[in-house]
Write a protein that binds this DNA or RNA. Structure first.
Lengths: 170, 170
DNA sequence: CACATGCTTCACGAACTTGTGAAGTGTGTT
DNA sequence: AACACACTTCACAAGTTCGTGAAGCATGTG
């Protein structure tokens, strides 16, 4: 049954590849790997040990990673009574909506920083005008993203219905 | 005229603050500072020396930073005939639209990485299904962003007209 | 109540990143 | 033609980040 081993390797390769993209998007390496792994592996909940063994890293590394993921809401920590380990579950319904909602907070900081600059410089000088336009664009984008996220659930259901309503005939 | 000095300090403080936000968004420190400075200062073009002196850093640091900024299209390099230095101009019209358009490429990589995972895992297993939904969301978001960016120029003009057409009465 | 287990915290070594100074390169000036 | 100036490249030192191993801390189990 080397196939199982091969699958595991393939999964880990994907985890690294996807993790890299997540890192480029600003996520720390270890949380990125854990997230990718929890997404792509088939379990619906993981203990810290599962993650450590699955990824082949030390439990210490997992500890920090899950803390961050829980903090930003990408992972939920649960506790089954009569057990010694926390369970981490990837609440996959609307996962990415929630992720993006969190990202919007950083866009918000962006807006605030720029608004502070506009206040500092006024809108008469060229620099101030450029900043003001930047601020306007960020506000616009923010609004558009909020709208888009609000549309997603409906779009998601539409896609699902489409696939179920006209499944591949056999 | 310590006021001028104070203004310079205030500007540099803003540059650091804004630069920090840009770094959180994934930009390297030096390019972030240069971009913030070029945006907020009043000149409409800068030599490498202007930037180095203005920011109080070595010319060497500027060299690398502007190269990156030029590469992603945030800064344009120009050459006036009969002069020894390149001029860097912040083409501020649609600057952020272009920036976001570039960002979309990274979203694209995201989509590709996830699509690869779906291909690897199939859509029958839980992990594969989660990845498929992720892919769908990213595609949706991509489309929405493209639409939003297409709407920006009109929105921008609308805002400008509004401000000019109905200026604050006094 | 002692023990085993699983997670967490901490301090460290390795790897990477950043900006500098110094040397090099090209371009206009005298 | 030699010089001066402005930028670029390069090698390095300082600082930062990352994941590990070891020790500590809970929490069930015999």
């Amino acid at each position: 049954m080397a196939d199982v081993e091969d699958d595991r390797m393939a999964l880990l390769r994907f985890v690294e590849r996807f993790g890299l993209v997540l890192r480029e998007a600003g996520m720390a390496p270890m949380p990125a790997r854990v997230l990718a792994y929890a997404l792509a592996d088939d379990a619906d909940h993981y203990t810290a040990g599962d993650l450590a063994r699955g990824l082949g890293v030390s439990p210490a590394a997992i500890s920090g990673a899950v803390r961050q993921l829980v903090q930003v809401g990408l992972l939920v920590r649960e506790r089954e009574p009569g057990t010694r380990s926390d369970l981490y579950v990837l609440d996959d319904r609307d996962l990415w909506s929630r992720f993006m909602t969190a990202e919007l907070a950083s866009l918000r900081r962006f807006e605030e920083a720029v608004a502070g600059g506009v206040e500092l410089l006024g809108t008469e000088r060229p620099g101030g005008r450029r900043l003001a336009e930047t601020r306007d664009f960020m506000a616009f984008l923010h609004g558009e993203l909020v709208d888009a996220l609000a549309r997603w659930p409906a779009e998601r259901d539409r896609l699902a219905a489409e696939r179920n309503g006209a499944p591949v005939p056999r």
